[in-house]
């Protein structure tokens, strides 16, 4: 049973990791808890769903288009709700993000209605059984895609020129702009990538859990952020790691403590990690500037 629970936690964790990746990207650059990320995740799931069911688009294409749509929405939100507040306190930006999140989820409710939609699965329901555990094809795909996205993202940030500019911007905006980096452009690109990842997470999780609703972004958005913090916010492998740690903690909490305290166990893990290593499991401790 233990192995099976470990697998359960791993898969659940990789769904959190998918969401956490986008969160961590945005936070890394502008240090804003992008509350609307959960709504972009929801939006991506809806775009994917509509493309697949109404326009009969092949799944892979729908997945990519949903990512593009998510990127577009992310850029729009950044432009309308965050950019004007770049020079103000970060709390103002946080409230603006909350406003954007409320707006988007209620817009979806107005357009799509409250009844959950079923996401038709593009994968067959093959289940692989061993004596120790059971795993399905879609679970393997979810796990693999979160690992792939993490690797791709890490390579992008570490190896490309834009990635380098991103890291410079994250470190010090003013100096970066003196070095000829167009900060606004970098932030836009970051939002585009982060939101595309959010939308990708929405489609994947939609496929995995089978339903799409306007309010689906709230709790997973929160958990995704918690995962990013556990792993070390701003750190891409950390998001993956944090997501999996969170997933496993939740599942083990439900399995060996009590399913009634499942979420409490997850949040307790968060607090313990923060207390022991405030910068997250994989985060580097920043030197305090005096």
């Amino acid at each position: 049973m233990f192995i099976q629970q470990l697998i359960n936690g791993l898969i659940l964790g990789s769904t959190y990791a998918l969401i956490a990746l986008g969160y961590t990207m945005v936070y890394g650059i502008i240090e804003l808890i992008n509350f609307a990320h959960g709504e972009i995740y929801m939006f991506g799931a809806f775009v994917g769903l509509i493309l697949v069911t109404v326009f009969k688009v092949p799944f892979i294409l729908a997945f990519l288009l949903a990512m593009a749509a998510g990127a577009l929405l992310g850029i729009t939100v950044e432009y309308l709700a965050y950019r004007p507040l770049r020079q103000s306190s970060r709390l103002a930006a946080l409230i603006s993000a909350i406003g954007a999140s409320i707006f988007l989820s209620n817009l979806a409710l107005l357009i799509m209605g409250a009844q959950p939609y079923t996401f038709p699965s593009p994968f067959d329901a093959t289940v692989y059984r061993t004596s120790l555990f059971v795993i399905s094809k879609v679970e393997i795909i979810v796990l693999a895609s979160s690992i792939l996205l993490m690797i791709a993202l890490t390579l992008f940030v570490q190896r490309t020129k834009v990635g380098k500019a991103m890291r410079a911007t994250a470190q010090d905006k003013d100096t970066a702009s003196l070095m000829g980096i167009n900060i606004n452009r970098i932030i836009t690109i970051t939002f585009a990538i982060g939101s595309a990842l959010g939308a990708a997470a929405g489609v994947m999780v939609g496929v995995y859990f089978r339903t799409v609703t306007p309010t689906m972004g709230l709790m997973p958005g929160l958990k995704g952020f918690v995962a990013a913090v556990i792993g070390g916010i701003g750190n891409i492998p950390g998001a993956m790691f944090g997501g999996i740690a969170l997933g496993i903690a939740e599942v083990m909490g439900a399995a060996y403590i009590s399913s009634q305290y499942r979420d409490a166990v997850a949040f307790a893990l968060l607090i313990i990690v923060l207390l022991l290593k405030p910068s997250g499991l994989l985060g580097r401790t920043a030197q305090e500037k005096v």
């Binding site: 049973m1 099976q4 629970q5 359960n8 936690g9 898969i11 659940l12 769904t15 999780v205 859990f209 339903t211 309010t215 709790m219 997973p220 939740e250 599942v251 083990m252 439900a254 399995a255 399913s259 009634q260 499942r262 979420d263």
Partner: peptide, 16 residues
């Protein structure tokens, strides 16, 4: 066993 409203993942409880 219990779960929360709007939860998606019930595998831990099911395994148990």
């Amino acid at each position: 066993e219990s779960f929360m409203d709007k939860d998606n993942d019930f595998k831990a409880q099911i395994t148990k």
